[in-house]
Amino acid sequence: MKSLISSFRIILLILSVQTLQAQMLNWAGGPDGFRHLFRASVGLEHGAILGIAYGYKVNMGPFPAVLTAEYSMPLGQDFPDDFKLRAGAQIRWAEAGDFRFSTNVNGIFRRYENSYARIENFGCEVSGALGYYRPGWYLAGEFGFDKAIVSHFRHSASYRESFPGVIDGWYEPATGGNFFYGLQAGVSFGKQDIFLRAGRLISEDFKSAPALPFYGQLGYNVRI
């Protein structure tokens, strides 16, 4: 198990260096021939978040796809103790007139640290978006699930003072999960997009919600 996790971690880290992600994309916007996509964004998603991303477009016949990767981190004084890396693919599966349906699958590595514990997690995010896409703008609804699949816990001396018996190491199966749903909208001009997405988060038990039960993101894309 540990070797598998280590392999997974290495692959993900390599990928995160090679590519970065872009989730928000106007499938009908701009020149079709773009290959690279760069993005910067600010928003709220389990905290106040800054993010940068890169996308690489690949042509798969009727299913155009963008290989994506993203680095994001919450604001705070202790940089960079918390962050998230996402790497995956966004694929447009269906097109009917100006309506399009796409999915987004990402592997995730994320890290959290405070004075009591450091948690590193491997997870997976799957989402779908159905929307109306015009060359100059788009509006879509999105729904997805973010699963924290396996996590490594390491506790500080401060926490051990409270609970000396705490057990560090890998914890599985899944340690958490949140559904999200909302809207995304964007405007495109030339090789650039500005987009906004917002919605709500709910825990996988469908009863409780995260401390910050909504998300929002304002971003800027450049396509080359």
Binding site: H46, G47, D82, G123, D205, S208, P210, A211
Partner: peptide, 13 residues
């Protein structure tokens, strides 16, 4: 952010 960021790592009923 420490308080809110943790929610994507651990959730409980």
């Amino acid at each position: 952010n420490d308080a809110t960021y943790l929610d994507q790592f651990i959730t409980g009923d």
